[in-house]
Measured scan of single mutants.
Amino acid sequence: GATAVSEWTEYKTADGKTYYYNNRTLESTFEKPQELK
């Protein structure tokens, strides 16, 4: 079976905060997504 690849990509803001962006739902969040835990 195919492994589900996380759609979340980790980015940093200009002031160094980490956030996560989902390229399928176009959602962004500062909290670590469930799929990455």
Results as ranks from 00 to 15, higher is better:
1 G>D: 12
1 G>T: 13
1 G>Y: 11
1 G>L: 14
2 A>M: 13
2 A>P: 12
2 A>D: 13
2 A>G: 13
2 A>Q: 13
3 T>P: 13
3 T>Q: 13
3 T>H: 12
3 T>L: 13
4 A>L: 13
4 A>Q: 13
4 A>D: 12
5 V>N: 11
5 V>I: 13
5 V>T: 13
6 S>R: 09
6 S>Q: 11
6 S>Y: 09
6 S>D: 10
6 S>I: 08
7 E>T: 06
7 E>I: 07
7 E>M: 06
8 W>S: 01
8 W>H: 00
9 T>M: 12
9 T>L: 08
9 T>P: 00
9 T>H: 08
9 T>K: 09
10 E>Q: 08
10 E>K: 05
10 E>H: 03
10 E>W: 07
10 E>C: 13
11 Y>D: 03
11 Y>W: 08
11 Y>F: 12
11 Y>E: 06
12 K>L: 10
12 K>G: 02
12 K>N: 04
12 K>V: 12
12 K>S: 05
13 T>R: 04
13 T>V: 02
13 T>S: 07
14 A>M: 09
14 A>D: 09
14 A>R: 08
15 D>N: 07
15 D>I: 03
15 D>F: 05
16 G>M: 02
16 G>P: 00
16 G>Q: 03
17 K>H: 07
17 K>A: 07
17 K>W: 05
18 T>I: 12
18 T>Q: 04
18 T>H: 05
19 Y>P: 00
19 Y>A: 09
20 Y>M: 01
20 Y>L: 00
20 Y>S: 00
21 Y>T: 06
21 Y>K: 07
22 N>G: 00
22 N>W: 01
22 N>I: 01
22 N>D: 01
22 N>T: 00
23 N>L: 08
23 N>E: 10
23 N>P: 06
23 N>S: 14
24 R>W: 11
24 R>F: 13
24 R>H: 08
24 R>K: 13
24 R>I: 15
24 R>Q: 10
25 T>V: 01
25 T>G: 01
25 T>L: 03
25 T>E: 01
25 T>N: 02
25 T>P: 01
26 L>Y: 13
27 E>H: 05
27 E>D: 04
27 E>A: 05
27 E>T: 07
27 E>I: 08
27 E>W: 03
28 S>D: 03
28 S>Y: 15
28 S>E: 09
29 T>G: 03
29 T>A: 04
29 T>L: 05
30 F>G: 04
30 F>V: 06
30 F>Q: 06
31 E>S: 09
31 E>H: 08
31 E>M: 08
31 E>W: 05
31 E>T: 12
32 K>P: 08
32 K>Q: 07
32 K>S: 04
33 P>N: 02
33 P>D: 02
33 P>M: 02
33 P>H: 02
34 Q>A: 15
35 E>Y: 06
35 E>S: 11
35 E>L: 06
36 L>M: 10
36 L>Y: 12
36 L>A: 05
36 L>P: 04
37 K>Y: 13
37 K>E: 13
37 K>F: 14
37 K>A: 15
37 K>P: 09
